[in-house]
Design a protein around this nucleic acid. Sequence first.
DNA 1: CTCCAACGTAAATGTTCATTCATCTTGACG
DNA 2: CGTCAAGATGAATGAACATTTACGTTGGAG
Lengths: 214, 214
Amino acid sequence: MPRITPERREAKRAHIMAAARRCFSRDGFHQTSMPDIAAEAGVSAGAPYRYFASKEEIILAIAADAFRLIFDPVEQLAAAADAPSVADLVAAALAALSVETVADSAGRPVPVDELLRCAVQTWSEVLRDDAVRSRALEGFESVRRSIADALCRGQTAGVVPLAMEPERGARMVMGLLHGLLLQRAAFDLTEMTGFDEDIRILLEGTERPGASSR
Amino acid sequence: MPRITPERREAKRAHIMAAARRCFSRDGFHQTSMPDIAAEAGVSAGAPYRYFASKEEIILAIAADAFRLIFDPVEQLAAAADAPSVADLVAAALAALSVETVADSAGRPVPVDELLRCAVQTWSEVLRDDAVRSRALEGFESVRRSIADALCRGQTAGVVPLAMEPERGARMVMGLLHGLLLQRAAFDLTEMTGFDEDIRILLEGTERPGASSR
DNA sequence: CTCCAACGTAAATGTTCATTCATCTTGACG
DNA sequence: CGTCAAGATGAATGAACATTTACGTTGGAG
Protein backbone atom coordinates (compact mmCIF):
# COMPACT_ATOMS: atom_id res chain seq x y z
CA MET A 1 0.00 0.00 0.00
CA PRO A 2 2.25 2.76 -1.18
CA ARG A 3 0.27 5.52 0.34
CA ILE A 4 1.58 7.42 3.32
CA THR A 5 2.50 5.85 6.63
CA PRO A 6 -0.45 5.92 9.09
CA GLU A 7 1.35 8.07 11.63
CA ARG A 8 2.23 10.63 8.96
CA ARG A 9 -1.38 10.71 7.86
CA GLU A 10 -2.65 11.14 11.40
CA ALA A 11 -0.13 13.90 12.06
CA LYS A 12 -1.17 15.80 8.96
CA ARG A 13 -4.82 15.45 9.80
CA ALA A 14 -4.09 16.90 13.23
CA HIS A 15 -2.06 19.68 11.60
CA ILE A 16 -5.03 20.65 9.42
CA MET A 17 -7.41 20.44 12.38
CA ALA A 18 -5.15 22.72 14.40
CA ALA A 19 -5.12 25.23 11.53
CA ALA A 20 -8.90 25.02 11.27
CA ARG A 21 -9.23 25.55 15.01
CA ARG A 22 -7.11 28.67 14.86
CA CYS A 23 -9.18 30.03 11.96
CA PHE A 24 -12.49 29.14 13.63
CA SER A 25 -11.37 30.65 16.92
CA ARG A 26 -10.34 33.86 15.17
CA ASP A 27 -13.06 34.32 12.54
CA GLY A 28 -15.89 31.91 13.34
CA PHE A 29 -17.11 28.79 11.58
CA HIS A 30 -18.95 30.58 8.81
CA GLN A 31 -16.53 33.43 8.18
CA THR A 32 -13.74 30.94 7.63
CA SER A 33 -13.49 29.57 4.08
CA MET A 34 -11.90 26.28 3.13
CA PRO A 35 -9.10 28.17 1.32
CA ASP A 36 -8.52 30.06 4.58
CA ILE A 37 -8.00 26.81 6.44
CA ALA A 38 -5.71 25.47 3.73
CA ALA A 39 -3.66 28.65 3.74
CA GLU A 40 -3.37 28.62 7.55
CA ALA A 41 -2.15 25.01 7.35
CA GLY A 42 0.26 25.91 4.56
CA VAL A 43 -1.22 23.53 2.00
CA SER A 44 -3.15 23.96 -1.23
CA ALA A 45 -6.88 24.54 -1.41
CA GLY A 46 -7.76 20.94 -2.26
CA ALA A 47 -5.58 19.26 0.35
CA PRO A 48 -8.02 19.31 3.30
CA TYR A 49 -10.43 17.23 1.22
CA ARG A 50 -7.96 14.32 1.44
CA TYR A 51 -8.61 14.26 5.18
CA PHE A 52 -12.15 15.55 5.60
CA ALA A 53 -15.10 14.97 3.30
CA SER A 54 -16.46 18.48 3.78
CA LYS A 55 -16.24 21.63 5.82
CA GLU A 56 -19.14 20.28 7.87
CA GLU A 57 -17.00 17.32 8.87
CA ILE A 58 -14.17 19.60 10.02
CA ILE A 59 -16.62 21.59 12.14
CA LEU A 60 -17.96 18.37 13.62
CA ALA A 61 -14.46 17.14 14.48
CA ILE A 62 -13.50 20.49 16.03
CA ALA A 63 -16.74 20.68 18.00
CA ALA A 64 -16.37 17.16 19.36
CA ASP A 65 -12.77 17.90 20.33
CA ALA A 66 -13.65 21.17 22.05
CA PHE A 67 -16.35 19.61 24.22
CA ARG A 68 -14.30 16.54 25.00
CA LEU A 69 -11.13 18.36 25.95
CA ILE A 70 -12.97 20.79 28.21
CA PHE A 71 -15.36 18.37 29.89
CA ASP A 72 -13.32 15.17 30.16
CA PRO A 73 -11.39 16.49 33.18
CA VAL A 74 -14.65 17.53 34.81
CA GLU A 75 -16.25 14.16 34.20
CA GLN A 76 -13.23 12.28 35.47
CA LEU A 77 -13.05 14.40 38.61
CA ALA A 78 -16.73 13.86 39.25
CA ALA A 79 -16.36 10.13 38.75
CA ALA A 80 -13.21 9.84 40.84
CA ALA A 81 -14.05 12.05 43.80
CA ASP A 82 -15.23 10.05 46.75
CA ALA A 83 -18.08 12.06 48.20
CA PRO A 84 -17.77 15.57 46.82
CA SER A 85 -19.82 18.51 48.00
CA VAL A 86 -21.41 20.81 45.43
CA ALA A 87 -18.65 23.31 46.10
CA ASP A 88 -16.01 20.64 45.42
CA LEU A 89 -17.60 19.87 42.06
CA VAL A 90 -17.89 23.49 41.02
CA ALA A 91 -14.34 24.26 42.10
CA ALA A 92 -13.02 21.30 40.13
CA ALA A 93 -14.98 22.33 37.08
CA LEU A 94 -13.74 25.91 37.25
CA ALA A 95 -10.18 24.70 37.55
CA ALA A 96 -10.63 23.19 34.08
CA LEU A 97 -11.32 26.68 32.72
CA SER A 98 -8.29 28.21 34.34
CA VAL A 99 -5.45 26.33 32.64
CA GLU A 100 -3.63 27.60 29.56
CA THR A 101 -3.44 24.45 27.49
CA VAL A 102 -4.68 20.88 27.56
CA ALA A 103 -3.30 17.84 25.78
CA ASP A 104 -5.26 16.20 22.98
CA SER A 105 -5.48 12.42 22.56
CA ALA A 106 -1.97 12.28 21.07
CA GLY A 107 -0.48 14.52 23.72
CA ARG A 108 -0.26 17.62 21.53
CA PRO A 109 -0.90 20.82 23.51
CA VAL A 110 -4.05 22.75 22.57
CA PRO A 111 -4.67 26.32 23.80
CA VAL A 112 -7.75 26.35 26.01
CA ASP A 113 -8.93 29.77 24.84
CA GLU A 114 -9.22 28.41 21.28
CA LEU A 115 -11.30 25.53 22.60
CA LEU A 116 -13.55 27.87 24.56
CA ARG A 117 -14.21 30.07 21.55
CA CYS A 118 -14.97 27.04 19.41
CA ALA A 119 -17.25 25.65 22.11
CA VAL A 120 -19.32 28.84 22.21
CA GLN A 121 -19.73 28.71 18.45
CA THR A 122 -20.66 25.06 18.63
CA TRP A 123 -23.69 26.00 20.74
CA SER A 124 -25.02 27.87 17.72
CA GLU A 125 -24.52 24.80 15.55
CA VAL A 126 -26.33 22.63 18.08
CA LEU A 127 -29.46 24.68 17.37
CA ARG A 128 -29.62 23.70 13.70
CA ASP A 129 -27.28 20.83 12.80
CA ASP A 130 -28.52 17.39 13.79
CA ALA A 131 -25.11 15.70 13.70
CA VAL A 132 -23.58 18.33 15.97
CA ARG A 133 -26.69 18.31 18.12
CA SER A 134 -26.74 14.60 18.82
CA ARG A 135 -23.03 14.50 19.64
CA ALA A 136 -23.28 17.52 21.89
CA LEU A 137 -26.35 16.21 23.70
CA GLU A 138 -24.63 12.88 24.22
CA GLY A 139 -21.58 14.55 25.74
CA PHE A 140 -23.70 16.88 27.85
CA GLU A 141 -25.79 14.03 29.25
CA SER A 142 -22.71 12.01 30.02
CA VAL A 143 -21.15 14.78 32.09
CA ARG A 144 -24.47 15.58 33.71
CA ARG A 145 -24.94 11.96 34.78
CA SER A 146 -21.45 11.86 36.27
CA ILE A 147 -22.19 14.97 38.28
CA ALA A 148 -25.60 13.68 39.37
CA ASP A 149 -24.00 10.42 40.52
CA ALA A 150 -21.37 12.34 42.43
CA LEU A 151 -24.10 14.41 44.09
CA CYS A 152 -25.89 11.21 45.14
CA ARG A 153 -22.67 9.94 46.71
CA GLY A 154 -22.38 13.29 48.45
CA GLN A 155 -25.90 12.92 49.79
CA THR A 156 -25.08 9.48 51.18
CA ALA A 157 -22.00 10.91 52.82
CA GLY A 158 -23.97 13.80 54.23
CA VAL A 159 -22.10 16.61 52.48
CA VAL A 160 -24.93 17.40 50.04
CA PRO A 161 -28.41 18.34 51.31
CA LEU A 162 -30.79 15.40 50.93
CA ALA A 163 -33.62 17.71 49.93
CA MET A 164 -31.87 18.78 46.75
CA GLU A 165 -32.84 16.89 43.63
CA PRO A 166 -29.58 15.58 42.09
CA GLU A 167 -30.74 15.88 38.47
CA ARG A 168 -31.50 19.55 38.91
CA GLY A 169 -28.38 20.01 40.99
CA ALA A 170 -26.28 18.59 38.16
CA ARG A 171 -28.02 20.91 35.70
CA MET A 172 -27.14 23.85 37.90
CA VAL A 173 -23.50 22.83 38.16
CA MET A 174 -23.37 22.42 34.37
CA GLY A 175 -25.09 25.76 33.99
CA LEU A 176 -22.59 27.56 36.17
CA LEU A 177 -19.75 25.91 34.27
CA HIS A 178 -21.21 26.82 30.87
CA GLY A 179 -21.95 30.34 32.04
CA LEU A 180 -18.46 31.03 33.32
CA LEU A 181 -17.03 29.36 30.21
CA LEU A 182 -19.00 31.88 28.18
CA GLN A 183 -17.81 34.79 30.29
CA ARG A 184 -14.25 33.61 29.93
CA ALA A 185 -14.55 33.34 26.15
CA ALA A 186 -16.71 36.37 25.42
CA PHE A 187 -17.28 38.60 28.44
CA ASP A 188 -13.81 39.50 29.67
CA LEU A 189 -13.55 37.15 32.61
CA THR A 190 -9.79 37.03 33.03
CA GLU A 191 -9.22 36.53 36.73
CA MET A 192 -10.38 33.08 37.83
CA THR A 193 -9.08 33.00 41.38
CA GLY A 194 -11.50 33.50 44.23
CA PHE A 195 -14.52 31.83 42.69
CA ASP A 196 -13.90 28.57 44.52
CA GLU A 197 -13.71 30.43 47.82
CA ASP A 198 -16.89 32.40 47.13
CA ILE A 199 -18.74 29.23 46.15
CA ARG A 200 -17.72 27.65 49.45
CA ILE A 201 -18.83 30.71 51.37
CA LEU A 202 -22.21 30.70 49.65
CA LEU A 203 -22.83 26.98 49.92
CA GLU A 204 -21.28 26.11 53.24
CA GLY A 205 -21.65 29.40 55.01
CA THR A 206 -18.01 29.30 56.08
CA GLU A 207 -14.65 30.08 54.60
CA ARG A 208 -12.48 27.02 54.46
CA PRO A 209 -9.22 27.63 56.39
CA GLY A 210 -6.89 25.56 54.19
CA ALA A 211 -7.98 27.21 50.95
CA SER A 212 -7.07 25.50 47.71
CA SER A 213 -6.88 28.52 45.42
CA ARG A 214 -4.07 27.32 43.14
CA MET B 1 -43.66 64.99 2.80
CA PRO B 2 -45.63 62.37 1.01
CA ARG B 3 -43.72 59.42 2.33
CA ILE B 4 -45.35 56.98 4.72
CA THR B 5 -46.71 57.85 8.13
CA PRO B 6 -44.12 57.26 10.90
CA GLU B 7 -46.25 54.68 12.69
CA ARG B 8 -46.71 52.73 9.45
CA ARG B 9 -42.98 52.79 8.89
CA GLU B 10 -42.22 51.64 12.43
CA ALA B 11 -44.79 48.86 12.16
CA LYS B 12 -43.29 47.57 8.93
CA ARG B 13 -39.81 47.66 10.34
CA ALA B 14 -41.02 45.60 13.28
CA HIS B 15 -42.77 43.24 10.87
CA ILE B 16 -39.51 42.64 8.99
CA MET B 17 -37.60 42.23 12.25
CA ALA B 18 -40.09 39.64 13.43
CA ALA B 19 -39.70 37.74 10.16
CA ALA B 20 -35.92 37.91 10.51
CA ARG B 21 -36.13 36.67 14.08
CA ARG B 22 -38.18 33.67 13.02
CA CYS B 23 -35.68 32.86 10.25
CA PHE B 24 -32.66 33.34 12.51
CA SER B 25 -34.23 31.25 15.26
CA ARG B 26 -34.97 28.45 12.79
CA ASP B 27 -31.89 28.46 10.54
CA GLY B 28 -29.24 30.61 12.19
CA PHE B 29 -27.81 33.99 11.26
CA HIS B 30 -25.56 32.75 8.49
CA GLN B 31 -27.83 30.12 6.98
CA THR B 32 -30.54 32.73 6.52
CA SER B 33 -30.30 34.76 3.31
CA MET B 34 -31.77 38.21 2.79
CA PRO B 35 -34.26 36.74 0.27
CA ASP B 36 -35.28 34.27 2.99
CA ILE B 37 -36.10 37.12 5.34
CA ALA B 38 -37.97 39.00 2.64
CA ALA B 39 -39.99 35.91 1.74
CA GLU B 40 -40.81 35.22 5.40
CA ALA B 41 -42.01 38.82 5.72
CA GLY B 42 -44.00 38.53 2.49
CA VAL B 43 -42.18 41.35 0.70
CA SER B 44 -39.81 41.53 -2.25
CA ALA B 45 -36.07 40.92 -2.03
CA GLY B 46 -35.15 44.59 -2.04
CA ALA B 47 -37.67 45.76 0.51
CA PRO B 48 -35.70 45.10 3.72
CA TYR B 49 -33.02 47.49 2.47
CA ARG B 50 -35.50 50.35 2.90
CA TYR B 51 -35.43 49.66 6.65
CA PHE B 52 -31.95 48.24 7.29
CA ALA B 53 -28.70 49.21 5.61
CA SER B 54 -27.40 45.65 5.58
CA LYS B 55 -27.89 42.16 6.93
CA GLU B 56 -25.34 43.02 9.59
CA GLU B 57 -27.63 45.77 10.82
CA ILE B 58 -30.57 43.37 11.09
CA ILE B 59 -28.44 40.96 13.11
CA LEU B 60 -27.36 43.81 15.37
CA ALA B 61 -30.95 44.91 15.94
CA ILE B 62 -32.10 41.36 16.66
CA ALA B 63 -29.19 40.72 19.00
CA ALA B 64 -29.78 43.91 20.94
CA ASP B 65 -33.47 43.07 21.23
CA ALA B 66 -32.81 39.52 22.39
CA PHE B 67 -30.48 40.58 25.19
CA ARG B 68 -32.65 43.48 26.24
CA LEU B 69 -35.92 41.58 26.34
CA ILE B 70 -34.41 38.73 28.35
CA PHE B 71 -32.33 40.74 30.78
CA ASP B 72 -34.40 43.85 31.35
CA PRO B 73 -36.76 42.03 33.76
CA VAL B 74 -33.76 40.65 35.63
CA GLU B 75 -32.12 44.05 35.90
CA GLN B 76 -35.34 45.69 37.04
CA LEU B 77 -35.94 43.04 39.66
CA ALA B 78 -32.40 43.38 40.93
CA ALA B 79 -32.75 47.15 41.10
CA ALA B 80 -36.17 47.08 42.72
CA ALA B 81 -35.74 44.34 45.30
CA ASP B 82 -35.02 45.73 48.71
CA ALA B 83 -32.39 43.43 50.15
CA PRO B 84 -32.46 40.25 48.11
CA SER B 85 -30.56 37.11 49.01
CA VAL B 86 -28.58 35.31 46.29
CA ALA B 87 -31.39 32.78 46.05
CA ASP B 88 -33.93 35.57 45.52
CA LEU B 89 -31.87 36.95 42.64
CA VAL B 90 -31.39 33.57 40.99
CA ALA B 91 -35.05 32.68 41.37
CA ALA B 92 -36.10 35.98 39.84
CA ALA B 93 -33.70 35.50 36.95
CA LEU B 94 -34.91 31.97 36.25
CA ALA B 95 -38.49 33.18 36.24
CA ALA B 96 -37.55 35.30 33.24
CA LEU B 97 -36.63 32.11 31.35
CA SER B 98 -39.87 30.36 32.18
CA VAL B 99 -42.42 32.56 30.49
CA GLU B 100 -43.78 31.95 26.99
CA THR B 101 -43.70 35.44 25.56
CA VAL B 102 -42.51 38.90 26.48
CA ALA B 103 -43.65 42.26 25.14
CA ASP B 104 -41.31 44.38 23.04
CA SER B 105 -41.07 48.14 23.40
CA ALA B 106 -44.33 48.66 21.47
CA GLY B 107 -46.18 45.97 23.38
CA ARG B 108 -46.02 43.35 20.63
CA PRO B 109 -45.65 39.82 22.01
CA VAL B 110 -42.38 38.05 21.19
CA PRO B 111 -41.90 34.30 21.78
CA VAL B 112 -39.19 33.79 24.39
CA ASP B 113 -37.81 30.64 22.76
CA GLU B 114 -37.02 32.65 19.61
CA LEU B 115 -35.18 35.18 21.75
CA LEU B 116 -33.22 32.47 23.53
CA ARG B 117 -32.11 30.88 20.28
CA CYS B 118 -31.08 34.26 18.90
CA ALA B 119 -29.23 35.06 22.12
CA VAL B 120 -27.17 31.87 21.91
CA GLN B 121 -26.21 32.70 18.34
CA THR B 122 -25.37 36.24 19.35
CA TRP B 123 -22.67 34.88 21.67
CA SER B 124 -20.88 33.60 18.58
CA GLU B 125 -21.09 37.03 16.98
CA VAL B 126 -19.70 38.65 20.11
CA LEU B 127 -16.49 36.74 19.49
CA ARG B 128 -15.79 38.39 16.14
CA ASP B 129 -18.01 41.41 15.48
CA ASP B 130 -16.97 44.59 17.26
CA ALA B 131 -20.35 46.31 17.00
CA VAL B 132 -22.17 43.32 18.48
CA ARG B 133 -19.40 42.87 21.03
CA SER B 134 -19.51 46.39 22.40
CA ARG B 135 -23.28 46.39 22.69
CA ALA B 136 -23.35 42.98 24.34
CA LEU B 137 -20.59 43.89 26.79
CA GLU B 138 -22.40 47.07 27.67
CA GLY B 139 -25.62 45.18 28.38
CA PHE B 140 -23.80 42.48 30.31
CA GLU B 141 -21.98 44.97 32.50
CA SER B 142 -25.17 46.86 33.18
CA VAL B 143 -26.97 43.77 34.45
CA ARG B 144 -23.91 42.63 36.34
CA ARG B 145 -23.65 45.96 38.12
CA SER B 146 -27.32 45.83 39.10
CA ILE B 147 -26.85 42.39 40.58
CA ALA B 148 -23.65 43.39 42.37
CA ASP B 149 -25.43 46.42 43.87
CA ALA B 150 -28.29 44.20 44.98
CA LEU B 151 -25.81 41.83 46.61
CA CYS B 152 -24.24 44.73 48.48
CA ARG B 153 -27.65 45.74 49.78
CA GLY B 154 -28.16 42.11 50.78
CA GLN B 155 -24.89 42.16 52.68
CA THR B 156 -25.93 45.30 54.54
CA ALA B 157 -29.21 43.63 55.44
CA GLY B 158 -27.42 40.49 56.54
CA VAL B 159 -28.98 38.09 54.03
CA VAL B 160 -25.82 37.74 51.92
CA PRO B 161 -22.53 36.53 53.48
CA LEU B 162 -20.18 39.46 54.03
CA ALA B 163 -17.19 37.35 53.02
CA MET B 164 -18.46 36.92 49.48
CA GLU B 165 -17.06 39.34 46.95
CA PRO B 166 -20.09 40.97 45.23
CA GLU B 167 -18.40 41.35 41.81
CA ARG B 168 -17.67 37.64 41.65
CA GLY B 169 -21.05 36.83 43.14
CA ALA B 170 -22.73 38.81 40.37
CA ARG B 171 -20.62 36.96 37.78
CA MET B 172 -21.78 33.66 39.25
CA VAL B 173 -25.44 34.68 39.16
CA MET B 174 -25.02 35.81 35.54
CA GLY B 175 -23.21 32.56 34.80
CA LEU B 176 -25.98 30.42 36.19
CA LEU B 177 -28.52 32.45 34.25
CA HIS B 178 -26.57 32.18 30.98
CA GLY B 179 -25.96 28.49 31.57
CA LEU B 180 -29.61 27.63 32.16
CA LEU B 181 -30.59 29.88 29.25
CA LEU B 182 -28.30 27.75 27.09
CA GLN B 183 -29.76 24.51 28.42
CA ARG B 184 -33.23 25.79 27.77
CA ALA B 185 -32.40 26.76 24.18
CA ALA B 186 -30.11 23.90 23.23
CA PHE B 187 -29.94 21.13 25.82
CA ASP B 188 -33.53 20.05 26.34
CA LEU B 189 -34.27 21.82 29.60
CA THR B 190 -38.06 21.90 29.48
CA GLU B 191 -39.16 21.69 33.10
CA MET B 192 -38.22 24.86 34.97
CA THR B 193 -40.02 24.27 38.25
CA GLY B 194 -38.03 23.24 41.27
CA PHE B 195 -34.84 25.12 40.53
CA ASP B 196 -35.74 27.98 42.83
CA GLU B 197 -36.41 25.55 45.67
CA ASP B 198 -33.13 23.69 45.08
CA ILE B 199 -31.21 26.95 45.02
CA ARG B 200 -32.73 27.90 48.35
CA ILE B 201 -31.86 24.52 49.81
CA LEU B 202 -28.27 24.80 48.65
CA LEU B 203 -27.75 28.40 49.69
CA GLU B 204 -29.79 28.66 52.85
CA GLY B 205 -29.64 25.08 54.01
CA THR B 206 -33.39 25.06 54.52
CA GLU B 207 -36.48 24.60 52.42
CA ARG B 208 -38.70 27.66 52.50
CA PRO B 209 -42.18 26.74 53.74
CA GLY B 210 -44.21 29.16 51.59
CA ALA B 211 -42.62 28.03 48.34
CA SER B 212 -42.98 30.18 45.24
CA SER B 213 -42.59 27.61 42.48
CA ARG B 214 -43.24 29.18 39.09
C1' DC C 1 16.18 0.87 -7.62
C1' DT C 2 11.65 1.05 -9.62
C1' DC C 3 7.03 1.77 -9.83
C1' DC C 4 2.53 3.29 -8.96
C1' DA C 5 -1.15 4.39 -5.97
C1' DA C 6 -1.96 7.87 -3.06
C1' DC C 7 -0.70 12.58 -2.23
C1' DG C 8 -0.58 17.40 -3.33
C1' DT C 9 -1.60 21.24 -6.42
C1' DA C 10 -4.04 25.02 -8.46
C1' DA C 11 -7.18 26.27 -11.73
C1' DA C 12 -11.98 25.47 -12.95
C1' DT C 13 -16.94 24.88 -11.94
C1' DG C 14 -21.38 25.83 -10.62
C1' DT C 15 -23.93 27.81 -7.18
C1' DT C 16 -25.37 31.05 -3.70
C1' DC C 17 -25.93 35.41 -1.98
C1' DA C 18 -25.80 40.40 -0.52
C1' DT C 19 -26.69 44.37 -2.65
C1' DT C 20 -28.15 47.57 -6.44
C1' DC C 21 -31.10 49.73 -9.81
C1' DA C 22 -34.43 50.91 -13.34
C1' DT C 23 -39.14 51.00 -13.07
C1' DC C 24 -43.70 50.91 -11.42
C1' DT C 25 -47.02 51.95 -7.45
C1' DT C 26 -48.93 54.29 -3.57
C1' DG C 27 -50.54 57.32 -0.13
C1' DA C 28 -50.67 61.72 2.20
C1' DC C 29 -50.48 66.63 1.59
C1' DG C 30 -52.20 70.64 -0.55
C1' DC D 1 -58.72 64.84 -6.45
C1' DG D 2 -54.03 65.39 -8.46
C1' DT D 3 -49.19 65.36 -7.59
C1' DC D 4 -44.88 63.42 -6.64
C1' DA D 5 -41.49 61.85 -3.41
C1' DA D 6 -40.97 57.80 -1.05
C1' DG D 7 -42.02 52.89 -1.11
C1' DA D 8 -41.97 48.51 -3.38
C1' DT D 9 -40.56 45.36 -6.97
C1' DG D 10 -37.71 41.74 -8.99
C1' DA D 11 -34.33 41.10 -12.29
C1' DA D 12 -29.41 42.07 -12.67
C1' DT D 13 -24.64 42.24 -10.88
C1' DG D 14 -20.46 40.91 -9.17
C1' DA D 15 -18.06 38.64 -5.72
C1' DA D 16 -17.20 34.64 -2.74
C1' DC D 17 -17.08 30.09 -1.86
C1' DA D 18 -17.35 24.83 -1.37
C1' DT D 19 -16.11 21.32 -3.99
C1' DT D 20 -14.15 18.94 -8.16
C1' DT D 21 -10.76 17.67 -11.36
C1' DA D 22 -6.85 17.10 -14.36
C1' DC D 23 -2.26 16.75 -13.76
C1' DG D 24 2.26 16.65 -11.65
C1' DT D 25 4.96 14.62 -7.39
C1' DT D 26 6.54 11.33 -3.95
C1' DG D 27 7.34 7.84 -0.56
C1' DG D 28 7.57 3.22 0.59
C1' DA D 29 6.66 -1.78 -0.79
C1' DG D 30 8.75 -5.18 -3.38
